[in-house]
């Protein structure tokens, strides 16, 4: 997948424009945490349809917590989350799973499970317990494997694959789930740069298919290249949000990350490029 293909998909311009349509996913004054530890301190966020929204921020700022709350893996202690105007708290688990999928960070499959087994699990919310398969399920799972480039690995065990292949298989499962909204928690963790780019190219494909993607990324350079909208978090709050070129600048990096860095437009494609100055 060439870099140019990514640009061709063309992110819609000027996110945030008032369209009158309900945002596919929205957090309203969300507070959440673990036990006594409050992590999110009132987050308001409206995700725009058909875009890649990336949440960035220093460790412990609550970006994963936000994603987990958006995907109802965590119940907010205050505020609420809306999926296409419906409060997620009131949705039945299967209905939620047909509309939103969330891939947690570094998921682990049992030993010996094949890629095909995993991807077909994505059909779970679409079938009753006594129907292990249907021709439609088989077709959708096959298409999911093809579009994620794991069709050749279908009968291989996940534990035999490389980290990048495995991550693509997991994403194939969420593709087979056929949800409009896809949440990916640090999909590139533990991957080398080439594999990370592979996975993010896949995310761009999800967008091209019309899905709304929210991801958490650590790498600001990748976040700048692969996102339509960047949400910067610090201390459980949203500090800034907007297109990467508007949001990512040296002042913000110093302020939020405590990082001295040069930010300049890439001479090839004008996307913001982050280069830490460090103490060199």
């Amino acid at each position: 997948m060439a870099d140019t293909a990514r640009l061709d998909t063309g992110a819609p311009a000027a996110p945030g424009a008032v369209t009158g349509e309900l945002p596919p996913l929205r957090a309203v004054g969300v507070h959440a945490g673990y036990g006594d530890r409050a992590v999110l301190q009132g987050v308001d966020l409206a995700v725009t349809a058909g875009r890649i929204t990336t949440v960035v921020g220093p460790n412990g700022c609550g970006k994963s917590t936000l994603l987990r709350t958006l995907g109802r893996l965590l119940t907010p202690t205050g505020g609420h989350v809306e999926l296409g105007g419906d409060r997620v708290a009131g949705l039945r688990p299967r209905e939620l799973a047909r509309r939103l999928s969330i891939l947690p960070q570094s998921p682990v499959a049992p030993d010996g499970m094949t890629v095909r087994d995993l991807v077909e699990r994505g059909r779970h919310p679409h079938r009753p317990w006594y129907r292990q398969w249907s021709p439609e399920d088989v077709r959708i799972a096959k298409e999911a494997m093809e579009s994620t480039g794991v069709a050749d690995l279908a009968d291989r065990a996940l534990d035999e694959l490389s980290g990048g292949q495995r991550q693509r298989a997991w994403i194939a499962m969420t593709v087979a789930q056929q949800t409009d909204v896809v949440l990916l928690d640090e999909p590139t963790t533990h991957l080398d740069l080439a594999h990370a780019v592979d996975v993010l190219d896949l995310v761009v494909r999800l967008r091209a298919e019309g899905r709304t993607v929210v991801t958490v990324l650590h790498d600001l350079g990748l976040a700048a290249r692969y996102s339509d909208w960047v949400v910067v978090m610090k201390d459980g709050r949203v500090r800034a949000e907007g297109p990467p070129a508007d949001v990512l600048d040296a002042t913000m990096l110093a302020d939020v990350f405590g990082l001295d860095a040069h930010v300049f437009p890439d001479p090839y494609d004008a996307l913001p490029t982050v280069v830490p100055t460090g103490h060199a």
């Binding site: 995907g71 109802r72 893996l73 688990p93 299967r94 209905e95 939620l96 799973a97 047909r98 999928s101 969330i102 891939l103 947690p104 998921p107 682990v108 499959a109 049992p110 995993l118 699990r121 994505g122 779970h124 919310p125 969420t174 789930q177």
Partner: peptide, 10 residues
């Protein structure tokens, strides 16, 4: 696949 993935699958 883990409790979180299971919940994500409904």
């Amino acid at each position: 696949l883990g409790p979180e993935v299971a919940r994500s699958l409904g």
